[in-house]
């Protein structure tokens, strides 16, 4: 078993956290943009999308810290990191907690598309290479489903918290 296996696992991990966001983003923006369901909360829901994404990024950072525990030395981080630039890019998602950055919600979409492209690449390879291992696509789709659930869950929690906070302020 060489490091490519661990690199693949790290890639799946990244996909599990971030690849589901584009679809959650697109669906939310689409339905919120529908004229028939326009109301006061529309703008607010959409504005929460980058925060949901930031929450997912924070959870990812937490997982990485848990995996490194108790040795947070540079050597250990270097040894256990297979995709340093991708992980760095993934951790940048935490920056969407900053309201000024969160206002540009399309940035969060662009950020997450990097990870969605892994899925697109594997699907494209399966289409173009006849004898490609089908398990890769199966794995990808399992991970993608989990990512959708995670991103949807994170977004829902933030929406609920936001409404609860609004109610609390009114009371």
């Amino acid at each position: 078993m060489d490091s490519s296996f661990f690199a693949y696992l790290q890639q799946l991990e990244l996909m599990a956290f971030f690849s589901g966001y584009p679809l959650v983003y697109a669906l939310t923006v689409f339905f919120a943009g529908n004229q028939k369901v326009k109301n006061n909360f529309k703008k607010r829901i959409v504005s929460l999308l980058p925060f949901g994404y930031a929450l997912v990024g924070t959870l990812y950072a937490g997982l990485q810290l848990k995996k490194l525990y108790p040795d947070y030395s540079f050597e250990n981080i270097k040894l256990s990191t297979q995709h340093p630039w991708l992980i760095f890019w993934a951790l940048l998602s935490i920056l969407f907690w900053i309201p000024a950055l969160a206002k540009q919600k399309v940035f969060s979409l662009i950020h997450s598309l990097v990870f969605f492209l892994f899925l697109v690449r594997d699907l494209f390879l399966q289409l173009s290479i006849s004898n490609m291992n089908e398990s890769i696509v199966k794995n990808d789709m399992n991970v993608y489903t989990n990512s959708l659930l995670l991103n949807f869950g994170a977004f829902t929690i933030l929406v609920l918290l936001s409404f609860l906070f609004t109610l609390y302020k009114k009371v």
Binding site: L123, E134, V137, K138
Partner: peptide
């Protein structure tokens, strides 16, 4: 497409 391809 991914789900269809992955569900075979």
């Amino acid at each position: 497409y991914g789900y269809i391809a992955g569900c075979t």
